[in-house]
Lab assay of single mutants.
Amino acid sequence: RRKSKRKPPPKKKMTGTLETQFTCPFCNHEKSCDVKMDRARNTGVISCTVCLEEFQTPITYLSEPVDVYSDWIDACE
């Protein structure tokens, strides 16, 4: 008699959501930077609500707010 092989359980999909508020690289306030994605103009704007620092970068249809933040961090270095 042959043993029946069980199929492995399906893999769980990533359910965690990406951050939309970030720590400002200038004033170091946590969750003080908000990202606005202007898909019509293909630009992402991130601004700090505390020190009013602002950064704008081009985006694509695949871009997420975390991509705008990482572009800002890269531009600071």
Rank of each mutant, 00 (worst) to 15 (best):
residue 1 R to G: 08
residue 1 R to W: 01
residue 2 R to K: 14
residue 2 R to D: 10
residue 4 S to G: 08
residue 4 S to V: 10
residue 4 S to Q: 05
residue 5 K to Q: 15
residue 5 K to L: 03
residue 5 K to F: 05
residue 5 K to T: 15
residue 6 R to M: 13
residue 7 K to S: 08
residue 7 K to N: 15
residue 8 P to T: 15
residue 8 P to G: 07
residue 8 P to K: 01
residue 8 P to S: 14
residue 9 P to C: 06
residue 9 P to R: 09
residue 9 P to A: 12
residue 9 P to S: 14
residue 10 P to C: 03
residue 10 P to R: 04
residue 11 K to N: 15
residue 11 K to S: 07
residue 11 K to C: 02
residue 11 K to E: 12
residue 12 K to G: 10
residue 12 K to P: 06
residue 13 K to S: 09
residue 13 K to H: 08
residue 14 M to A: 14
residue 14 M to Y: 07
residue 14 M to W: 10
residue 14 M to H: 13
residue 14 M to T: 05
residue 15 T to S: 12
residue 15 T to L: 10
residue 15 T to F: 02
residue 17 T to Q: 14
residue 17 T to N: 04
residue 17 T to D: 14
residue 17 T to K: 09
residue 17 T to P: 13
residue 18 L to Y: 07
residue 18 L to D: 08
residue 18 L to K: 12
residue 18 L to W: 05
residue 19 E to Q: 12
residue 19 E to T: 05
residue 19 E to V: 11
residue 19 E to G: 04
residue 19 E to A: 11
residue 20 T to E: 08
residue 20 T to D: 11
residue 20 T to I: 08
residue 20 T to F: 13
residue 21 Q to K: 10
residue 21 Q to S: 06
residue 22 F to E: 01
residue 22 F to P: 04
residue 22 F to S: 04
residue 22 F to K: 10
residue 23 T to P: 11
residue 24 C to R: 01
residue 24 C to E: 00
residue 24 C to Y: 00
residue 24 C to F: 00
residue 24 C to M: 03
residue 26 F to E: 05
residue 26 F to P: 00
residue 26 F to M: 10
residue 26 F to Q: 07
residue 26 F to H: 00
residue 27 C to E: 01
residue 27 C to R: 00
residue 27 C to V: 00
residue 28 N to F: 14
residue 29 H to S: 13
residue 30 E to F: 04
residue 30 E to T: 11
residue 30 E to Q: 15
residue 31 K to P: 06
residue 31 K to C: 03
residue 32 S to Q: 10
residue 33 C to D: 03
residue 33 C to L: 08
residue 33 C to E: 02
residue 35 V to F: 06
residue 36 K to M: 06
residue 36 K to S: 03
residue 37 M to A: 02
residue 37 M to Q: 01
residue 37 M to N: 01
residue 37 M to R: 02
residue 38 D to L: 04
residue 38 D to K: 02
residue 38 D to I: 06
residue 38 D to W: 03
residue 38 D to H: 08
residue 38 D to R: 04
residue 38 D to M: 03
residue 39 R to D: 05
residue 39 R to T: 14
residue 39 R to W: 07
residue 39 R to E: 09
residue 40 A to T: 02
residue 40 A to M: 14
residue 41 R to K: 14
residue 41 R to C: 08
residue 41 R to V: 13
residue 41 R to T: 14
residue 41 R to Q: 11
residue 42 N to I: 05
residue 42 N to F: 05
residue 43 T to F: 12
residue 43 T to W: 05
residue 43 T to R: 07
residue 44 G to T: 04
residue 44 G to M: 02
residue 44 G to D: 02
residue 45 V to K: 03
residue 45 V to T: 03
residue 46 I to A: 09
residue 46 I to W: 01
residue 46 I to F: 03
residue 47 S to V: 12
residue 47 S to P: 01
residue 47 S to D: 15
residue 47 S to C: 12
residue 48 C to H: 00
residue 48 C to I: 00
residue 48 C to N: 00
residue 48 C to S: 01
residue 49 T to E: 12
residue 49 T to C: 10
residue 50 V to K: 10
residue 50 V to M: 07
residue 50 V to L: 14
residue 51 C to Y: 00
residue 51 C to Q: 00
residue 51 C to E: 00
residue 51 C to I: 00
residue 51 C to S: 01
residue 51 C to P: 00
residue 51 C to T: 00
residue 51 C to W: 00
residue 52 L to E: 10
residue 52 L to A: 15
residue 52 L to Y: 14
residue 52 L to I: 06
residue 52 L to T: 15
residue 53 E to C: 05
residue 54 E to M: 07
residue 55 F to S: 03
residue 55 F to E: 01
residue 55 F to P: 00
residue 55 F to W: 10
residue 55 F to D: 01
residue 55 F to N: 04
residue 55 F to G: 03
residue 55 F to K: 02
residue 56 Q to N: 15
residue 56 Q to V: 12
residue 56 Q to A: 09
residue 56 Q to G: 09
residue 56 Q to Y: 04
residue 56 Q to F: 04
residue 57 T to S: 15
residue 57 T to E: 09
residue 57 T to D: 03
residue 57 T to A: 15
residue 57 T to F: 00
residue 57 T to C: 04
residue 58 P to N: 05
residue 58 P to L: 07
residue 59 I to S: 02
residue 59 I to N: 00
residue 60 T to I: 04
residue 60 T to F: 15
residue 60 T to W: 03
residue 60 T to R: 11
residue 60 T to H: 09
residue 60 T to Y: 06
residue 61 Y to A: 15
residue 61 Y to G: 14
residue 62 L to C: 07
residue 62 L to K: 13
residue 62 L to Q: 15
residue 62 L to H: 06
residue 62 L to V: 13
residue 62 L to M: 12
residue 62 L to T: 14
residue 62 L to R: 14
residue 63 S to E: 08
residue 63 S to H: 13
residue 63 S to V: 05
residue 63 S to W: 04
residue 64 E to T: 10
residue 64 E to F: 05
residue 65 P to M: 10
residue 65 P to S: 07
residue 65 P to D: 08
residue 65 P to Q: 09
residue 66 V to W: 05
residue 67 D to H: 06
residue 67 D to L: 02
residue 68 V to H: 00
residue 69 Y to G: 02
residue 69 Y to C: 04
residue 70 S to L: 11
residue 71 D to H: 14
residue 71 D to K: 14
residue 71 D to Q: 07
residue 71 D to V: 14
residue 72 W to S: 02
residue 72 W to N: 00
residue 73 I to Q: 05
residue 73 I to C: 09
residue 73 I to F: 08
residue 73 I to W: 04
residue 73 I to G: 04
residue 74 D to I: 13
residue 74 D to N: 11
residue 74 D to P: 05
residue 75 A to P: 01
residue 75 A to F: 12
residue 75 A to G: 11
residue 75 A to V: 12
residue 76 C to H: 05
residue 76 C to R: 14
residue 76 C to Q: 14
residue 76 C to A: 12
residue 77 E to G: 15
